[in-house]
Amino acid sequence: MSITADLIRGHTDAIILAALMQGDSYGYRINRSMCDLTDGRFELKEATLYTAFRRLEESGYIRSYWGDEATGARRRYYAITPDGRSAYRGMVREWREASELLEKLMRFGSDGDVSGAEQI
């Protein structure tokens, strides 16, 4: 549980950018989509979400704007920028490389059987 949370925490920015690759969205909708996608197993705290929004906006990876009230409730929307798309692709590459390495390292101790690692 704690390892899972740690792993996920390290990729908060990538997860948010991934959600915004689908289109502009706002805080709750992004969190809700993460929750739905993982069958309720993962959801960011609002504090983490807004801290990440702020960090990503300062980095130029996303931009925000207030939605038109005429289309419904007033919302602060976030949109991914070209720099953000590029950063997202880089993060995905890094993650694939890291997960491939981890997979090999984990299997190393369990003779090809990952579940065996839990018995060590």
């Binding site: 549980m1 899972t4 949370a5 996920i8 925490r9 908060t12 929750c35 309720g40 197993r41 993962f42 959801e43 960011l44 705290k45 504090a47 983490t48």
Partner: peptide, 10 residues
């Protein structure tokens, strides 16, 4: 904790 996983939240 700031991140909840494995159904900790909803």
């Amino acid at each position: 904790p700031e991140v909840s996983a494995n159904g900790a939240n909803r």
